[in-house]
Design a protein around this nucleic acid. Sequence first.
DNA 1: CGAGATTCCTATACAACTAGACAAGTGATA
DNA 2: TATCACTTGTCTAGTTGTATAGGAATCTCG
Lengths: 237, 237
Amino acid sequence: MPRTPIWKSIADDLSGEIADGLYLPGDKLPTEAQLAARFGVNRHTVRHALSALVEAGTVHTRRGAGAFVAQTPTDYPIGKRVRFHQNLRAAGRMPTRQVLSFTTRLASPEEREALGLKPDDQVHAYEGLSLADAQPIAIFRSVFPATPFPDLPAAFEASGSVTAALKDAGVADYTRAWSRLTATLASATQALHLRIAEGDPLLRSDGLNVDTTGQPVELGRTWFAGDRVTLTLSEED
Amino acid sequence: MPRTPIWKSIADDLSGEIADGLYLPGDKLPTEAQLAARFGVNRHTVRHALSALVEAGTVHTRRGAGAFVAQTPTDYPIGKRVRFHQNLRAAGRMPTRQVLSFTTRLASPEEREALGLKPDDQVHAYEGLSLADAQPIAIFRSVFPATPFPDLPAAFEASGSVTAALKDAGVADYTRAWSRLTATLASATQALHLRIAEGDPLLRSDGLNVDTTGQPVELGRTWFAGDRVTLTLSEED
DNA sequence: CGAGATTCCTATACAACTAGACAAGTGATA
DNA sequence: TATCACTTGTCTAGTTGTATAGGAATCTCG
């Protein structure tokens, strides 16, 4: 008669309470010490239970911060040609962008090459997180040449939107000059942002946007969480 | 879970950006608070990373003023990697291929779905390696419906080329109906074929080819070695 | 049955990270 | 000059991650 392990019963209890809505997605669970006290077991036993929930995708943990109820993990289809947001909206997801940083700095050699800049030229670098239903989907970094758009940071500050800020700067429309795709592994910080493990696969998409006159406007690089995202290309787009 | 401490990963990121010339000697780095926001960590973690850079002599800090790139920055060696650029459109028609297997079997549910087959329908499965400069670039698996092409194996045996064999079967031309891209990790066997390490990143491309009448001809799946290959999307794709 | 291996759980210690608060120093401005 | 917002330095406290060690129950196989 195989007795059910305590950690399993704890895991069942917790996932039941989560399913009952006792803890909503994003909520913090009690600390391991509190749970250990509540169930009258060692912290390690609680950890075993929690790691089972992490494995199942029910919760996700952040060292030093706590364990949090995860959003429902699903696969997000993303079209290439269509705008990222509209695509997710169509799929019934709530798309969000979270700004991580917006700085002005010197351009790297690769950025100079792609944007056609001179050695001392500066760029605006915009980094952020793309989320769907509060689930991180991708990390992006956009780089804009600073010379043609000196007021971009201010305009971005005011409107909170890059597209709006670009419009203010006179760029009504732009098109994709090229896209390049490759696969990489998540670094520790990338994994942290995307709430995945270090070494998980990422789909990296690089692209250059140019205005109607062919002048480079934006050099973008996006890292998609490989196990959450599928990039779809269809002939119709 | 994080094999690499986050502070170390941050330190690597920052020293890489300094090496890339984003910040020149004497330049001020973003404030600890800004970096903490960008990397999504606590300020203490950023401080840990910065103190490692100070230790290494890359930057120096002044209380109340900021962190500055040291005058004698240690430029670090850039590993020159040869990257193979591959157009997604042409991906199915690589010059040098190595046949791993050519079998006829029942279709899987996914294959039935994509090719529009009935439960008992059979398919020809063609697996192989794509090579460039005698180096394995990708693993591919193509699946053809057996009913329209009963003689494909024989024709392939004779000509050694799938395109030629298809032509014999009356398919003069075909086009790509859709492509789906995602990132995965290399399994042990995949790693062996591609001569990479298990757990290295792979770029997985799924695609369906249809003939001029819209009839499915080939369902393909290709795993590109992420370290070696960049997929380029032209505007027509 | 019995010995060894495996699983389950406890216990301890330390490293990594978060959180908040306050002191000390800088730089710009009135 | 005095002030004030901002930045770095330091401190305390709490939480999760990992490593090690060991005891007890259970499973496996000769």
